[in-house]
Design a protein around this nucleic acid. Structure first.
Length: 435
RNA sequence: GUCCGGAUAGUGUAGGGGACUACCAUGAAGGCCUGUCGAGCCUUCGACCCGGGUUCGAAUCCCGGUCCGGGCGCCA
């Protein structure tokens, strides 16, 4: 049985009148009007109407068509017919239909958009949810987004690396790690490639990036957190935090622009028109951010407080676009961020914010061995556990800076998606590890 | 973790002590129909999360459990 297609549905045009074609895909809908029957075939690219005239059709083909259940996988060979009454101006008159895999009934969810399904139902049946054009559009845009990130960073001289997800120690204090059994010892799932990408600065790679999974064992339960997420991480040598902030804002603008061009049809499916963010993004110091909050919010913050969810929201509403918050208090940022030489209570750290949430955080890093070791100790951590990392700082490491950007958050803010689970194929959260 | 809300056919929902033999849509099965494009019309099928309690009577009220959603917290 030949199951190779000659065309995707979208590759057929009315001008191909009288030509034969073989399509392959899923039975999207069947409309039997009596003397005439319409079968809508769906593939990755779109839909095609297959029309069966019961008086003239081969009885064997009709027999097979009548037996089809929705969402079965079939191939249809037929003749293209120019037909103004049909969607897209053509229809396919079948000469042969083969059932490659019949679908059971009832279906676990609707694929045509007639009946909604809850997120939980859709995630339980993700294979079928992805058949819906809207869901598929999200993940095709995700592909274009990651592709744009790679294209941009490569053009900027960054080298893509991959670092281990199974690690012996925590990257930094605070965040809970998932312990795993590693042969006869204990290991953890990595919460960030931070330490490894910094080591590569000592390795002389100058500019590196990684797009990879990160794991957080936090018991958070919100629409913007996952226990397994994708981080876009960058680290660059001989540059400061201002330099990598510029890389970051240009990356975001580039992603918006590239996606709007390369994923135009998927954006159209979702009814979204992207506004390319304007550069440069506004920069607030931490002090200014606190002021903005205290002017507009009932919930007052003091210097040294981290920004609450409410503060992020309030400031986001005031600014109304992407913005940076920089010069954070040293004590609420990780040990590896570089304090200002003339004012060590603040650090060369920044967050990139979308009005809805934090997208990225970064900093110039400490490259002085003694200071780094001291900062690790100050945060109550044991430097001995970081020897593999600290070693790289003893034999020549340049000043360097970098950031980590949440891929899912970038996507969900770009597409105005409310729940982070909608932009991950198989999300991992407090309540879900399967499928 | 915590506060609030919820769980009804495969899917999405209505109903909040008796008139429930549980509404509607979608779906499935069968029938009519030659231009549908969320086709239309007719017939049929399919459900009250689990356990306990209150009551003459519980889908509905109470208690416990499980699961789900939302807010907050936690969170480079």
């Amino acid at each position: 049985m030949e199951f190779r297609r000659t065309h995707y549905t979208t590759q057929i045009t009315p001008q191909m009148d009288t030509q034969t074609a073989r399509l392959a895909g899923w039975v999207h809908e069947i409309r039997d009007l009596g003397g005439i029957m319409f079968l809508i075939l769906r593939d990755r690219e779109g839909l095609t109407q297959v029309t069966l005239f019961k008086k003239t059709i081969d009885p064997d083909v009709l027999q097979i068509a009548k037996s089809l259940s929705r969402e079965s996988v079939i191939t249809i060979e037929g003749v293209v017919k120019k037909e103004p009454k049909a969607p897209n101006g053509y229809e396919l008159i079948p000469t042969q239909i083969d059932i490659l895999n019949p679908a059971q009934s009832p279906l676990p969810m609707d694929t045509t958009g007639k009946v909604d399904a809850e997120l939980d139902t859709r995630l339980d049946n993700r294979f079928m949810d992805v058949r819906r054009p809207k869901t598929q559009a999200v993940f095709r845009i995700r592909h274009h987004m990651l592709s744009a990130v790679r294209g941009f960073l490569e053009q900027e001289g960054f080298i893509e690396i991959t670092t281990p997800k199974v690690v012996a120690t925590a990257t930094e204090g605070g965040t809970a790690l998932f312990p795993i059994t590693y042969f006869d010892t204990e290991a953890f799932l990595n919460q960030s490639p931070q330490l490894f990408k910094q080591i590569m600065m000592s390795g002389g790679m100058d500019r590196v990036f990684e797009i990879g999974a990160i794991f957080r064992a936090e018991e958070h339960d919100t629409r913007r957190h996952l226990n397994e997420a994708t981080s876009i991480d960058v680290e660059a040598s001989f540059v400061d935090h201002e330099d990598v902030m510029q890389v970051l804002e240009r990356l975001v603008a580039h992603v918006y622009l590239t996606v709007s061009e390369d994923a135009a049809s998927s954006l159209n499916t979702l009814g979204i028109e992207l506004n390319i963010p304007e550069l440069p993004f506004k920069r607030l110091t931490y002090d200014e951010a606190i002021e903005v909050n205290n002017e507009h919010s009932k919930e007052l913050l003091e210097w040294g407080d981290d920004l609450s969810t409410n503060a992020e929201k309030v400031i986001g509403e005031v600014i109304g676009a992407h913005y940076f918050i920089k010069d954070w208090p040293t004590e609420i940022k990780p040990y590896y961020t570089q304090p200002y030489e003339d004012e060590p209570v603040i650090t060369k750290a920044f967050d990139l914010m979308h009005p809805r949430m934090e997208l990225s955080s970064g900093a110039q890093r400490i490259h002085d061995y003694d200071l780094l070791r001291k900062r690790i100790q100050d945060q109550g951590l044991n430097p001995d556990g970081f020897e593999f990392y600290l070693k790289a700082f003893r034999y020549g490491i340049p000043p360097h800076s970098g950031w980590g950007l949440g891929a899912e958050r970038l996507l969900m803010t770009m597409l105005d998606v409310d729940n982070i689970r909608d932009v991950v194929l198989f999300p991992r959260d407090r309540k879900r590890v399967s499928p």
